[in-house]
Amino acid sequence: MTRTSLETVLAILREEFDELLSAWLETQKAEGVRRPDLFSDRESRRQLGELLRGLGDGIDAADDQRTLNLEAEPWAGLRAALEEVTHERVERGVSPSEMATFVLALKQPVFARLRQKLEAAPDKLIEEITEFSRLLDAVAMHTNEHFIAERDQIIERQRTEMMELSTPVVQLWDRVLTIPLIGTLDSVRAQEVMENLLNSIVEESAEVVIVDITGVRVVDTQVAQHLLRTAAAVRLMGAEAIISGISPKIAQTMVELGVDVGEVTTRPTIRAALSDAFRKVGFSIERRGDADRG
């Protein structure tokens, strides 16, 4: 029993490296996954070369093909090459099925060469085709998993960036902050709003924060709960929250829903909240005597 049943495949990978590489590129082109718009020929050749080398080294070193485990040591080179290729393609917006086809496009050129070499040994031919097919399917699967993990990371990063954009904490005056909420307020967003706000309280030594909900579309029981929790957390930090932008319609809804705001200060407009906030931190706004009264 040889260490690998894929000795012919291995020989092809080693001896016909350049030809195979070109054939693989051609198949990718035919399948429409070569993406010359994203990668130069030279770049593609280099990446595919690394993959082929990793594949060959893996087949050579893996002691048992039956327990195919790409996480094992012999496949480290292949994994590294795959991860690089996947990373770059995710960044450039390639789809998951394109990614799988990209890997599987290697089957055709390898099979063609196997048929030539093993013409006289049909049993061996079938064995190697089956084995290599299994190996490449596993590689495609691994690529896909890695692809999805990479994409999740990107989505998470974009979400965080958007969150920071959509919930800016603004300093209105010394010790006075505001956070204008816009759109919808679900649990995840509410938590991020709260976290942002509380960290800003520490950074700015804020004593009053105005949570303005003028731009919040719907205030239902859940949104009201989020707002009241935010106010409670602000108070625990030693600052005070004012919720502004409560329209008559929102006030009516809140009463109908039986929402009790308790001790939390609410104001119809951010203007009313601001004048309150000034008073709380010891300032007052007054009209200058010479002001134009127009």
């Binding site: 938590q191 709260m194 976290e195 509380l198 960290n199 309280i201 520490v202 929790r229 409670a232 957390a233 602000v234 625990l236 930090m237 030693g238």
Partner: peptide, 14 residues
């Protein structure tokens, strides 16, 4: 007066 509560602690307590 309770003072100096950290943000993560305040959120967790709520």
């Amino acid at each position: 007066y309770v003072v100096g509560m950290r943000p993560a602690v305040a959120m967790t307590l709520v």
